[in-house]
Design a binder for these strands. Structure first.
Lengths: 198, 198
DNA sequence: CCCTCATGTGAATTTAAATTCACATTATAT
DNA sequence: ATATAATGTGAATTTAAATTCACATGAGGG
């Protein structure tokens, strides 16, 4: 076998991205080193040149997920000024991410996260609370501009927003894609927006 | 060691209940046969007299969870007639179950559910959609009695309700109990009820 | 051009848990 | 009271995957 040699920083990225993909493609399998290696095109043992352990790869996946989620926030912030469009866009993008990157919900509902020592749960908790904080900011800005009712508790709104996305992800993932997530959005979004708009 | 011999139906219940407990007490450990056996007071091999496999135990746990959740619905239905009280009670009971039976969220976010063959996901999907259907009924009855706005889509309301509970469970579980679930309810419930009440 | 270190490999090694099995015991049906 | 079927046990057995290791190779700095 003639496998090209590549520098560690490149390999690390490949490995993490592949791991996330593999995870998404095998909804019913534990994530094995062998499978990641195969996807990258390396021998299993080679991965250990770039990560101390399987666990370290899992942590890196969490980082990748954080990046993907937060980039959505930045994008919608820049794409428009008004809260309605921002939130609506964020919702759509979030769903799109979950739909295309099967690996993300898979990771959120996995033993990698729940079945191991605290560390990863904490990491994910911070990712989510940080994400919520960003939504709170968007709501606040919307209130400042008079687009959202003043008597709405921004945290309540943010959590409610999250409450649209998360159960949808759960049901969609659980039903293997049969759950109609678009219909869900079509019903839930207007309901949500009617409730908080000025 | 002198261990009492008990009939299979009794043992099965013991085993499943113990499994759920053990699962809740070790948030960071895979559920091992050895640990279940220890809790019941049997040798690991004895469990195989009552269940074909570890997997069968997992399925039985799902059944137990279904029972616990659905009994709440029955209770609140009988405890009161008006939709507000029913839904509010259901919310509180649901949270109480999640809080006391750590094993339930642990199961929902576990590889037992997500990392194995379809069957269990489907089972859980059915449990949840069934639960949602019950909530839809409660909402409909509330509408019939004029307590809830006619223009509210019952399914939307039910999902929104679910959207209060589920993220709370996630965050609470993820934060190892640090997330203030009572505060969450105190904020989210009025918000929800204001939105749908007549 | 060569040296060396980073990268890659296949073959052990480690580990850990589920499951099976041959044998023991006791509950209960007759 | 006895037979037998159900229940319980500790000691194998199976399995399966992560990790390590001794050795190979090629990229890039000097």
């Amino acid at each position: 076998m003639t496998t090209e040699k590549l520098p560690t920083d490149v390999r690390r990225e490949q490995i993490v991205a592949s791991a996330l993909q593999v995870m998404g493609e095998n909804p019913d399998k534990h994530l094995h080193i062998k499978d990641i290696a195969q996807r990258v095109g390396l021998a299993p043992s080679a991965l250990y040149r770039h990560f101390r352990s399987r666990d370290a790869i899992m942590s890196a996946i969490l980082e990748l997920i954080r990046t993907k989620l937060y980039s959505n926030i930045e994008t919608v912030r820049q794409a428009s000024e008004d809260a309605e469009t921002r939130l609506r866009e964020l919702l759509e993008r979030h769903i799109r991410v979950i739909r295309s990157e099967h690996g993300i919900p898979r990771m959120i509902f996995s033993d990698e996260l729940w079945g191991q020592k605290q560390e990863k749960r904490q990491k994910m908790f911070r990712i989510i609370t940080g994400y919520l904080a960003e939504i709170v900011d968007i709501v606040r800005e919307g209130q400042a501009k008079g687009e959202i009712r003043q008597d709405v508790n921004p945290m309540a709104a943010a959590r409610m927003f999250f409450g649209i996305v998360q159960p949808a992800a759960l049901l969609w993932h659980m039903s293997e894609g049969r759950f109609d997530i678009d219909e869900h959005l079509a019903i839930a979004w207007p309901f949500f927006w009617q409730t908080i708009k000025s």
